[in-house]
Amino acid sequence: VTVDIKGMEYHFDNPEEAKKFAERMAKELGGELKVENGTLKVE
């Protein structure tokens, strides 16, 4: 699973970990979490 945090890509084997990480980063950065082509994106 790929997580894109404002252009920086992180790769996770575990989808649950990827989702938790993306949600935490969205909250910390005040960004919006989206799913695009199987990639979790925070913008």
Rank of each mutant, 00 (worst) to 15 (best):
H11W: 13
K20N: 11
N37V: 06
M8P: 01
G31T: 07
T39F: 11
G38M: 05
V3G: 01
E43V: 15
D4R: 13
A18T: 00
M8H: 12
E17I: 06
V35W: 15
P15G: 07
E23C: 11
K27L: 14
F12Q: 00
F21L: 01
L40R: 00
V3C: 07
E16V: 09
N14P: 00
K20Y: 07
V42C: 06
E28L: 12
E36D: 11
E9Y: 14
N14C: 08
E16N: 07
F12R: 00
E28W: 09
M8Q: 13
E43A: 10
G31W: 13
G31I: 11
V1H: 10
P15R: 09
V3D: 01
G30A: 08
L40Q: 03
E32Q: 14
Y10N: 01
K6Y: 15
G38C: 07
P15D: 09
E43Q: 12
G7P: 02
D13Q: 10
G30Q: 09
V3H: 00
V35A: 08
A26F: 05
K19P: 00
K20L: 12
T2R: 09
D13A: 12
D4F: 15
R24M: 14
R24A: 15
E32P: 05
M25G: 02
A26I: 08
A18H: 00
I5A: 02
K27P: 01
A18S: 00
N14W: 03
A18W: 02
E17D: 12
E17A: 10
D4N: 15
H11F: 12
V35T: 11
M8E: 11
E28D: 07
E17V: 06
V35N: 10
D4Q: 15
L40D: 03
I5M: 03
E17M: 07
H11G: 02
G7T: 02
G38T: 06
G38L: 05
K41S: 08
P15H: 12
G31A: 13
Y10M: 03
F12G: 00
E32K: 13
A22D: 01
E28M: 08
L33D: 03
I5Q: 01
A22C: 08
F12I: 01
F12M: 01
A26W: 09
V35S: 09
L29P: 03
K41C: 06
G7E: 02
H11D: 02
N37Q: 08
F21T: 00
A22V: 06
G31L: 14
K41D: 04
L29W: 07
G31C: 11
E28A: 07
E17L: 07
K41G: 04
V42T: 04
K27C: 13
N14I: 05
E16I: 09
E36G: 08
L40Y: 14
F12V: 00
M25T: 05
E28R: 06
A18I: 00
Y10F: 12
E17W: 04
D4K: 14
I5F: 06
D13K: 10
T2K: 11
T2L: 10
T39D: 06
Y10E: 00
H11S: 06
N14G: 06
K41E: 04
E17Q: 08
L29R: 01
K34M: 09
V1E: 02
T39L: 13
V3S: 01
L40F: 12
A26D: 05
V42N: 03
D4V: 15
K19I: 14
V1W: 15
R24I: 12
P15F: 15
I5N: 01
R24G: 11
E23A: 05
E32I: 15
K34D: 05
E9P: 07
M8R: 13
E32W: 15
Y10V: 04
E16F: 09
K34Y: 12
K6D: 15
E43S: 12
L33Q: 04
G7S: 01
A18R: 00
E28F: 07
E28T: 05
V35R: 05
M25N: 04
N37E: 09
N37M: 08
M25H: 05
V3N: 01
M8G: 03
L40P: 03
F21K: 00
F21M: 01
K20M: 10
T39Q: 11
G7F: 02
T39P: 03
L33K: 02
E23G: 00
V1K: 04
N37W: 05
E16Q: 09
E43W: 14
V42S: 04
D4C: 15
Y10P: 01
A18V: 00
R24Y: 14
V42D: 04
L40W: 14
V1I: 12
V1G: 03
V1A: 08
K41H: 09
V1P: 03
E23K: 04
M25P: 02
V42M: 05
V1Q: 07
F21V: 00
G38P: 04
E23I: 09
F21S: 00
T2D: 03
Y10A: 02
E32T: 15
E16C: 09
V1L: 12
E17K: 05
G38W: 02
T39E: 06
E32N: 13
A22Y: 03
A22F: 05
F12T: 00
L40G: 04
T2V: 13
M25R: 03
G38F: 03
E36T: 11
E16D: 12
L29M: 10
Y10G: 00
K19D: 03
L40I: 15
E28S: 04
G31H: 07
E43L: 14
E36N: 08
K27I: 13
E32V: 15
V35M: 12
H11K: 10
T2P: 02
R24D: 13
A18P: 00
G7L: 01
L33E: 03
M8V: 14
A22Q: 02
E36Q: 11
K20R: 12
E36K: 05
K41P: 04
K27W: 13
Y10I: 06
M8T: 13
F21R: 00
E9C: 14
K34H: 11
I5K: 01
G38H: 07
V35F: 14
L29G: 04
H11I: 11
G30F: 07
V1S: 08
V1M: 12
E28V: 08
L29E: 05
E16T: 10
D13L: 10
L40H: 05
A26L: 09
